[in-house]
């Protein structure tokens, strides 16, 4: 076994199986939640559901992140809020505007787009990694959080951190031969994909779900979400 073969295996069958589990598992999770059903909303329609949804997203993405102090979560723990926010921002930029990742999207959907310059990506992946370390230290030292953090949460952290750190090392060509770190990146990505349907990282799916429902409910009542 040599690293070229390991890379071909991780780019091939391993990633394939991981994607299969990811797609089938997430569909399963989503249906399970949908079929739980929710209480009939008997309020009369006074406004626009669509408008409520739009306002809810705009506020969540473009307003609240910049005036975080109005939020209880922020006042509760500024550090978690800022580090968490920076982590998600970095993750988004790297996954959507990193050239290597754009090629993955292109292979799935048939079209690509322009990436960000590498130095900017490098900056954000570093920010993402540091934020994750801050979040970890916070969890390890905060007396209440530590108690709340159960085993699966540590796994959540690990399976996200590993692709971040291996990706960063690979893109900077540090320490490892490229095919070695590339294989490690793909093995950790596969791990993440396999873990997502079983753990709480699937929140990225349910986020849109809850944001939409809440927006619609508020819109119906003609109140600002």
């Amino acid at each position: 076994m040599n690293w070229t073969n390991i890379l071909n295996f991780s780019r091939g069958p391993l990633l394939h199986v991981a994607m299969i589990i990811f797609v089938a598992g997430l569909s399963f999770r989503l249906v399970r939640v949908l079929l739980l059903g929710w209480a009939r909303d008997r309020a009369k329609n006074k406004g626009s559901k669509l408008w409520g949804v739009i306002v809810n997203y705009l506020k969540g993405l473009f307003v609240l992140p910049f005036i975080p102090w109005v939020r209880r979560t922020f006042r509760h723990n500024e550090l978690t809020f800022i580090a968490g926010g920076l982590f998600h921002l970095s993750l988004f930029l790297v996954l959507v505007f990193g050239t290597a990742h754009i090629l993955v999207w292109k292979s799935l959907w048939g079209f690509g787009w322009k990436g960000l310059p590498t130095p900017i990506l490098a900056f954000f992946s570093a920010v993402g990694i540091i934020s994750m370390i801050v979040l970890l230290i916070n969890r390890l030292t905060h007396p209440v959080l530590k108690m709340l953090t159960k085993f699966p949460v540590w796994i959540n952290w690990l399976v996200v951190f590993l692709p971040m750190i291996t990706g960063f090392i690979m893109a900077r060509h540090l320490w490892f031969r490229y095919e070695v770190i590339f294989s490690l990146h793909l093995i950790s990505v596969s791990l993440l994909l396999i873990w997502i349907p079983f753990g709480r990282i699937s929140h990225f799916l349910f986020y849109f779900f809850s944001k939409t429902i809440h927006g619609a409910q508020a819109g119906k009542r003609a109140v600002t979400p």
Partner: peptide, 9 residues
């Protein structure tokens, strides 16, 4: 691209 999965879904 080298980063694309070899087996496509």
């Amino acid at each position: 691209g080298q980063s694309t999965p070899i087996i496509r879904l």
